[in-house]
Nucleic acid binder design. Structure first.
Lengths: 221, 221
DNA sequence: ATGCGTGTGTGACTACGTCACCGACATTGC
DNA sequence: GCAATGTCGGTGACGTAGTCACACACGCAT
């Protein structure tokens, strides 16, 4: 019962009454999945709500034509809440989630989710706040795809993905997928960034040498 | 109590127990809003969930740059459910909803919504099913904007907007807004359709003369 | 008729996406 | 070591979509 520790990681869950916390801990299960695992996706009717304790899950969508775009990432302390809609509506899911790192998560079974939603206003708040966040993310994606310039979007993504180190191991194709564009477009844009001295390129590797410059470009959205 | 008639219009609400139906009818209010009214939007924290009995609400998003794109429409028998996330998460909403026609709707106050969510599994199902539908819509928009060709998207939209009559009163600019693109692009595309004999154009008016052709193009998504 | 606001047409240009292809590099098996 | 193979990245030519700067057409009010 003392692994209730994970609850602290989740913004909205602290406020839950102790009785509810207990149910949550007792009736859900801590699971770990290795990098690359498909957490949910078309054909997989999910029957758990996942709360990510550690790691990140990349949620992306693949169109009929086979092209792919990253919708958002679920980070530690967040939940795969959009799956709940399908979870309860028994619908197939158009997007798929893949573990980008080794992931530790708490899996809340459908029935438990439903009980909690019934019994705890705070839990409902938690769920709807998570929804609001994701939907906002989707709105942002639509805005960027529809109206954004790729140099700006790419700069933004590079900074976002690099984290503190300024080093990232990605292929041009992977970056193209992030933004839902073509590999060549990314290649050319990266060359341009390199020419300006903002990054250094090598096979499967990008290293940011002038992060502020990239941030400035990204900010000019 | 006999205006409970509207409940029948909503797919998921028929299954509600009578007691719940009664609460719903008693504690919500039928409202009518005229064409053009802003139903929700940035700066307006919504405190009602609207169930549309009659009319349609157009939900669109405007980017910082002032460009606009239509996200989806709420039709009779559906609900503005995405607002509930903000409703309960107390967040501002990035999108705005405008009554496209005179609208009759049932407004469920926040507290009633919360009570129903607590007390009725069927109501929760209804809400999450509505969510699933909207989210699916958003995914479709992303897919189309990112990977779709405008001729296809335009053909699809023309057919969708025209309804049975095959006549529609829209400016090229409005169609551009529908798809999140530029007026010139629409103008040229419409000219092309006209050249092929699929439509006839006049100021502020489009009349579909070969709907099947448009549908065929739209289907080749 | 004159003027004005809104809606539409057009050409030149830029940005992005597509296609076809080639060469560089890494890995594996020999 | 060398060759075979697969992945990754570079490049030119081209097509489609979005941008910019206009000019013109129509409807309405004065």
């Amino acid at each position: 019962m003392n692994d209730a520790a994970w609850i602290k990681r989740f913004e909205g869950l602290n406020r839950l009454p102790d009785a509810i916390k207990e149910t949550l801990v007792k009736r859900s299960q801590v699971v770990t999945v290795p990098t690359g695992t498909k957490v949910f996706g078309p054909g997989l009717v999910p029957d758990n709500l996942l709360l990510l304790v550690e790691g990140t899950v990349k949620v992306s969508q693949t169109s009929e034509s086979g092209r792919e775009i990253v919708l958002y990432r679920v980070e530690a302390g967040q939940s795969c809440v959009l799956t709940t809609a399908c979870l309860l509506a028994h619908e197939a899911y158009a997007a798929e989630g893949v573990a980008e790192t080794d992931v530790t998560a708490v899996a809340i079974p459908r029935v438990v989710f439903d009980e909690l939603a019934a019994s705890s206003p705070q839990f409902r708040d938690f769920v709807f706040a998570a929804y609001a966040r994701r939907i906002t993310d989707l709105f942002r994606v639509i805005d960027e795809v529809a109206f954004g310039k790729i140099d700006v979007r790419l700069a933004d993504r590079l900074v976002g993905l690099a984290g503190g180190s300024g080093e990232l191991e990605v292929t041009h194709q992977q970056l193209a997928t992030e933004l839902g564009t073509a590999r060549e477009v990314i290649s050319r844009q990266l060359s341009e960034f390199q020419k300006r001295g903002w990054i250094r390129l090598s096979r499967g590797h990008v290293s940011l040498s002038d992060t502020p410059a990239l941030e400035r470009l990204a900010a000019s959205a």
